[in-house]
Amino acid sequence: MIERATPIDALSAPPAFEDLLRTAAEMDTPDGYKAELIRGKIVVSPFSRLRYSRPMRLLREQLQSHVPDGCFADTSPFLFRFPSAERGYGPDLYVAEEEAFEEDGLHADGAALSLVGEFTSVSTKDADWNEKLDVYGRLVPVYLVVDMQDSEITCFHDPSPHGYRARTTVSFGEPLRIPAPFDFTLDTAI
């Protein structure tokens, strides 16, 4: 048998958004990794480092008593779909409508989110500050970027078709006002 390169038919168009979502859900990612759709591609990245657990838990606990009726705060890895942007993200922390998880599908509707929190890492910082900011800024009422490298938390709010209209950044340890629908002051001493 002669070894030689075998041409394959190139895709005439990129895979459809729903196909990418299905592929991401069916992937057998290694333990400790998650698959997201970033910039139209499936990106596999590690879950947050162990030292992120405490800040995630403390933030979730503070949020829990302020979530809107019919919602809950969690850190479980679920993929939320954003069809108009053809993206699917698995936020580190989120507040979502409970009914979004009553569907049979594998991906929750991004419109069910009232808050997303992303904890930056060296590998995810660019996507958290750029791509996700753009997508969340058109739909999600509150987006928290917990910058673990710079020890700051930024609260983006007031979404619009062009992205968030407002933002506040504080250093860890300073109080941070979380606007409606939460309306409380977050203790950032994490």
Score class of each variant (00 low, 15 high):
residue 104 D to S: 12
residue 105 G to R: 10
residue 88 G to C: 13
residue 60 R to H: 06
residue 75 T to S: 08
residue 89 Y to N: 03
residue 98 E to R: 14
residue 63 L to C: 08
residue 61 E to P: 00
residue 96 A to E: 09
residue 106 L to I: 04
residue 103 E to Y: 06
residue 72 F to T: 12
residue 67 V to H: 00
residue 82 F to K: 01
residue 100 A to P: 15
residue 59 L to V: 14
residue 95 V to D: 02
residue 84 S to K: 09
residue 89 Y to L: 10
residue 106 L to Q: 12
residue 68 P to Q: 00
residue 89 Y to K: 11
residue 94 Y to Q: 06
residue 71 C to V: 06
residue 97 E to R: 15
residue 86 E to T: 13
residue 78 F to P: 00
residue 83 P to G: 14
residue 81 R to M: 10
residue 99 E to C: 13
residue 107 H to K: 00
residue 99 E to R: 14
residue 67 V to R: 03
residue 58 L to Y: 01
residue 82 F to S: 04
residue 74 D to W: 07
residue 102 E to Y: 14
residue 105 G to Q: 06
residue 103 E to W: 05
residue 102 E to R: 14
residue 99 E to P: 03
residue 96 A to H: 05
residue 82 F to M: 10
residue 72 F to A: 11
residue 93 L to K: 04
residue 81 R to F: 02
residue 96 A to G: 10
residue 82 F to V: 09
residue 64 Q to M: 11
residue 104 D to N: 12
residue 101 F to K: 00
residue 81 R to T: 09
residue 68 P to G: 00
residue 100 A to L: 15
residue 60 R to E: 14
residue 92 D to I: 11
residue 58 L to N: 06
residue 95 V to C: 15
residue 104 D to I: 10
residue 77 P to N: 08
residue 66 H to L: 05
residue 109 D to T: 02
residue 62 Q to S: 10
residue 81 R to G: 13
residue 96 A to M: 09
residue 93 L to V: 09
residue 102 E to S: 15
residue 86 E to L: 07
residue 76 S to A: 06
residue 75 T to F: 03
residue 95 V to W: 03
residue 78 F to Y: 12
residue 107 H to R: 02
